[in-house]
């Protein structure tokens, strides 16, 4: 009799076990994959400078950026819209971690080439890496011929180099912050007192207002600014608007250029005196390569 009771108990325990919720089994069986934070920023730029976001492998982006003249120039200059500085660029994702690009700015007729490489990615979940780290490098060739006669710069005098470390964390779906120490080297300087090597520390962030709109800010503090011109630290505020396929950014900044060596070290306008430039970044993405073989995975052969 005793044995019988035990048997019954065991059988009923057995039943309890099988009655285990099917979802619990699914949860147990779910493979543990490492996940990374995505979309820390919407675009590859916070506003003026680069964010840690890259374009994925095979995506070619055509980027058009504009900065107009100062809004406090008044109605005669249509609040700066009569003046405009433009940069065209092609930017391409070689791999998911490495992005390259070339651009041409109307300001100083400058050509630039850059790379951005993701060194570390912020993970999701416990014990995951807390921040994303990217390395950014760019070379600028200043092609404008504004020299005194007989004082022609050599080819190498026209070159500028920027190196940045981009450290970012997505604190929540709505809030991301990035810190970017920058090092800018100029092969030639205007006067003896100008430093060849300039160090700056930047901070940028975004707060999402809705799913598709965010407010961004970006500031660069220059530790050893140029002496030949009266420089200011670059400050920008803007809005990201995502419209289906691409991101549109509207910017207010005291910087008139869109390449690092210029806006970090050569801004001269005072944001709070009203020397603000209206600008925008717009991009169009084209996908290459990854054209999935249609239907390839699609139910190779139906079992039925």
């Amino acid at each position: 009799m005793k044995k019988f009771i035990i048997l019954l108990t065991i059988l009923s325990i057995g039943n309890v076990v099988t009655a285990q919720d099917l979802f619990e089994i699914l949860d147990e069986e779910t493979p543990q994959t490492k996940e990374y934070a995505t979309a820390t920023f919407k675009g590859t730029r916070i506003l003026n400078g680069h964010s840690i976001e890259n374009r994925k492998k095979g995506i070619l982006e055509f980027v058009i950026s504009h900065r107009f003249g100062r809004v406090n120039l008044g109605a005669d200059e249509l609040f700066g819209l009569d003046q405009s500085n433009i940069r065209f660029a092609f930017e391409y994702g070689l791999t998911d971690n490495l992005m390259i690009g070339v651009g041409r700015s109307s300001f100083e007729k400058a050509y630039d080439a850059f790379f951005k490489y993701k060194l570390l990615k912020q993970g999701i979940g416990k014990k995951s890496f807390p921040i994303s780290v990217s390395l950014f490098g760019s070379t600028v060739y200043r092609s404008v011929d504004d020299f005194e006669p007989g004082n022609e710069p050599s080819e190498s005098d026209r070159l500028f180099y920027t190196t940045q470390l981009l450290l970012a964390r997505k604190f929540s779906p709505g809030f991301s912050l990035q810190i970017m120490p920058s090092y800018i080297h100029r092969n030639s300087v205007a006067i003896e007192e100008d430093p060849h090597d300039i160090f700056a520390l930047g901070i940028g962030g975004r707060i999402k207002l809705t799913k598709r709109i965010s407010v961004n800010g970006e500031y660069h503090y220059t530790l050893n600014p140029l002496e030949s011109i009266n420089t200011t630290n670059s400050l920008a505020f803007g809005i990201d608007i995502e419209t289906g396929g691409h991101v549109f950014q509207i910017i207010l900044s005291n910087s008139i250029t869109m390449i690092e060596k210029s806006f970090i070290t050569e801004s001269t306008d005072d944001f709070f005196e009203g020397d603000v430039h209206l600008g925008f970044n717009i991009s169009r993405a084209f996908q290459f390569g990854q054209k999935k073989k249609r239907k390839q995975q699609k139910i190779k052969e139906s079992h039925l």
């Binding site: 919720d21 099917l22 996940e35 289906g244």
Partner: peptide, 22 residues
């Protein structure tokens, strides 16, 4: 019982996938 991880949906365009999830 069926469980589908939304991030595992693969799109032809990477940006589409990002926007789908975001």
């Amino acid at each position: 019982a069926i469980s589908i991880l939304m991030k595992s949906f693969m799109f032809e365009k990477a940006l589409m996938q990002e926007h789908f999830n975001e």
